[in-house]
């Protein structure tokens, strides 16, 4: 609990000083929004924020599709050894340090002559997000009643109809969780991006790191404060989306019981 307090108080410290009229975090010179003005005037940082979100959104979307397909493959794999191999590879990617992943991608991109920039960052983000999605989707598949598949076939569904009308809706909470997790991993990734970025392309974490070396401007505090608000919104969105289906059920129940009462 204590460490949590420290982390949170640091955060508040950071946020409060973003409103400081002075230029350093030592000593409070009065309230001002000037660092926010600086931030919005800084077109490079705005562009980088957009880059970061575009990479996060694209990589997590693509990873959700590939990861779900991968989880389906592992689930349907009848050979036990094959299943174990693929699952182990997945877990290796999941636990290997970002530095190693970043370095390997750098070597790979250099060897095949792939130019560093937006695409290299996007590809590597997709790569480290896929195992996360697999990890979130696979348990949902395992807890799915296997006779649902048999029932869909029995009622005349072909493979695609079975997938789109039964399996995907049933495992959608897992896909959603995987998507949001991949999104946040991509958003705050530093190590991998640091290795594979280039040609002027940068993301937020890398940019803040390079600026911090010249002493942190309170503009970064303002940015952090805004990012904090965005992450809060993300958490709320996830909460809302993941409970929506149940809310819907709940409302129908209320309506039905009300009408039955009448």
């Amino acid at each position: 609990m204590d460490s949590l307090h420290i982390i949170i108080s640091t955060y508040f410290f950071l946020v409060i000083y973003s409103f400081n009229a002075g230029d350093v975090m030592q000593g409070w010179d009065g309230f001002s929004l000037k660092h926010y003005q600086e931030l919005f005037a800084d077109t490079r940082i705005i562009e980088i924020v957009l880059n970061t979100f575009v990479v996060a959104l694209l990589s997590s979307l693509i990873a959700s599709v590939i990861g779900t397909a991968g989880a389906l493959y592992i689930y349907n794999q009848s050979s036990r050894t094959m299943k174990d191999i693929v699952l182990s590879l997945n877990n290796v990617l999941l636990v290997s340090p970002d530095v190693i992943i970043g370095a390997s991608f750098l070597i790979l991109f250099t060897v095949v002559g792939f130019s560093l920039g937006f695409m290299s960052v996007l590809l590597s983000h997709i790569a480290f997000s896929i195992p996360i999605v697999v990890l979130m989707v696979l348990p949902k598949l395992k807890e799915m009643n296997t006779s649902l598949v048999a029932a869909a076939k029995d009622l005349g569904a072909n493979n695609w109809q079975m997938l789109s009308r039964v399996i995907l809706p049933v495992i959608s909470p897992g896909i959603l969780a995987g998507f949001f997790m991949a999104f946040t991993y991509s958003l705050d990734d530093f190590a991998v991006t640091f290795f594979v970025t280039g040609n002027g392309f940068s993301t937020l974490s890398v940019e803040i790191y390079s600026r911090a070396r010249q002493g942190i401007s309170l503009e970064i505090n303002a940015l952090s404060a805004l990012m904090f608000v965005v992450s809060l919104l993300l958490v709320l969105t996830y909460y809302f989306v993941s409970t929506r289906s149940q809310n819907k059920k709940h409302t129908t129940r209320l309506i039905t019981s009300a009408t039955e009462g009448v």
């Binding site: 009643n145 006779s147 029995d154 009622l155 039964v166």
Partner: peptide, 22 residues
Amino acid sequence: VPAEHRRVNTVFQNYALFPNMN
């Protein structure tokens, strides 16, 4: 003949109703 083309239907032991549908 695959299951989806047979003119028989099954009532499963655990019912296997689709939880995502009403």
